[in-house]
Design a protein around this nucleic acid. Structure first.
Lengths: 189, 189
DNA sequence: CCGAGTGCCTATAAACTTTAGGCAAAAGTA
DNA sequence: TACTTTTGCCTAAAGTTTATAGGCACTCGG
């Protein structure tokens, strides 16, 4: 009886793939076990429970997305950094809808604080260094960018833009222009 | 044996309350039946299945939110309309986190087209009538506002802003100022 | 007051979650 | 190599949820 070679890491990775295929909320311990030709109970040596699996996938997705964003940011600044970073988000959500949904999972505060979510905020703040947003507004600007990126990508993923005419890609490009201009000429308080 | 007086409407309403209490993804046919002191099977006379329940709650939340937004918009224009509308979203998500999560449920295209989601987009477009955004950019501006509102509220709900210093309320007010200014002086293409 | 319809019931089956305990393969030790 | 320890996946089993089918009794129109 050859062993399947399970581990928390392999289960998380396979869970992320499963999420992309069937949707994050369809990810179950049973379905994941089926994918490894193994009984569901066997997974409980590696996972505490079903919620633990979901949290692991969420952390995995957050880290993967942060890695891609960091790579895109390397060597860029200003508008170039802004669009590169933004496109990483949008592309990730389009390529990996299940993982992107996972990254939105509500984490308890200490888990969130130890997650790659922190890196995301740091990277947005790094982008702002290419602009002259005055210090007291920096955090506000970080939140503006983060909210816009997430909101746009999430609405697009949920079909919010599918009915009206201009392609989502076109709005995206135009709005990144607008935001770039806004950051360059940030209004004083 | 006194009847519980179930109906799709009462179940949807109670499902929305349940969502606010325990989270939208914890809403199950079983839990809802328990709340009415009724067997789960009884609900299937009123609901097709578990997914049907979730869709009904989502449509209920979308409509309720649209009603509140419409009420807030009445008699207002420009910046006044913008902030009133935005605050309806934020307040709704804070008062009714489960319903707000429900409103994000992915609907199939024809259901979405028949939902109150359409009214949301129309109202944002109405707000823009108080500004001089040139026609070709109107849809982009609608998407900017929609993305920002949803993204901010959703990140705040998921604890994304809880660690860093400025209160989420403060950023919100400042960013609405910024967006108002942006809309007033929308850059030409 | 009676007949018809429908509202909630019981019974049942299948899928998923989770715990407990067992056996055999893998890894460590002499 | 042989023996022990560890660990990985198993079976068994109980509890929960979803969903269907069929039945009884309450309610309402006549």
């Amino acid at each position: 009886m050859v062993r399947a070679g399970l581990s928390a890491e392999r289960l998380t990775q396979a869970g992320a793939e499963l999420a992309d295929e069937v949707g994050f909320d369809q990810v179950t311990v049973s379905a994941l076990a089926r994918r490894f030709d193994v009984k569901a109970a066997s997974l409980y040596s590696h996972l505490r429970n079903s919620q633990d699996l979901k949290v692991r996938i969420a952390l995995f997705a957050l880290a993967e997305l942060a890695d891609r964003a960091a790579a895109a940011l390397a060597g860029r600044a200003g508008r170039d950094a802004l669009t590169a970073f933004a496109n990483v988000y949008r592309d990730y959500a389009r390529e990996h809808p299940g993982r992107y949904a996972a990254a939105q999972l509500r984490l308890d505060p200490e888990t969130a604080a130890a997650s790659a979510g922190v890196r995301h905020a740091e990277m947005v703040r790094a982008i702002l260094r290419g602009y002259d947003v005055p210090e007291p507004d920096q955090t506000h600007a970080v939140r503006l960018l983060g909210s816009f990126f997430h909101g746009y990508v999430s609405l697009e993923a949920n079909g919010g833009f599918s009915h009206s005419a201009p392609e989502a890609r076109e709005s995206w490009a135009r709005l990144l222009d607008i935001l770039d201009a806004l950051l360059r000429t940030w209004p004083a308080s």
